[in-house]
Amino acid sequence: MALESVTLAPVPAELTEEAKAELELVNRARTGDTSAFSALIRQYEGKIFRLAMNITQNREDAEDVLQEAFLKAYEHLDQFQGNSKFYTWIVRIAVNQALMKLRKRKTDRSVSLDEQIDTGEDTVAREIAAWDPDPEVQYSQDELNGILTEAIDGLAPIYKTVFTLRDVDGLSTEETAEALDLTVPAVKSRLLRARLQLRDKLTRFFKRKGDDAFAYM
C-alpha cells in the first residue's frame, strides 16, 4: 500500500499520550504496516473475545466474531476517524458481528442485545449484609478470579456486556452507549441492575463473618 494513497487521521493535540500512541498505530496500519495492526490485535483481542463470549455464550461463535471483527476493522480502517477510541470503534463492529451470529441461530431476525431484558424487580437488592473492609484479601488471586468470573457469568448478556465495558474496561457511559448503540439512559439502567445483581452474588462470599443477610423490604 503506497503511503500517498491513504488518508491518515489527524492526531489532535488534546489526546492523551496513550490515545496518541494508539492513533499512530492505526495510521501505521493504514499504510500497510502489519506489525502495527498486530500490536492493536494483541492489545484488544482478549477484551473482544470476552465480549463476544458474553454476547454469544458460545466459544465457536466467539472465535468467529473475534476474527470477523478484526478483519472488518482492517478492511475499513480508513473509516476510523480518530475522534473515538479504537477500542470503542472495534467493540461496535464486534457487537454487530455477534448479533448477526445470534440472528443466524434464530429464525426471528429481530434479535437485539436488549431482548433478554425483563422489567421485574431486579433492581431491588436482596442481600443486606456488611462486607469485610477488604473482602478480596481473604482469597488467593485464583480463587478471587473464580468468584468474580462465576458471578459475572450468571448475568444476562446485556447486563454482562454493559458492566464489562463500563466498569471493567473503563469506558465512559457515553462510550458504552456509542459502542452498544444504546441510549445513555438505557446504559445507566442496565448498569445499575448489573451492579446490584453482582453485589447480591458477591455478598455470599464477602459478607462479614457473623452477619446474616436478611431480606430487604
Partner: peptide, 26 residues
Amino acid sequence: VICDTTKKTISVYKGMKSCAVPEDVH
C-alpha cells in the same frame, strides 16, 4: 450497606484482566 457493598463490587472488578486468547485462536 447497599451503597458501600456496591462501591466495593465495582472496585473489585475494576481492571479485572480478560483471559488470554487461546494460542490456537490467536
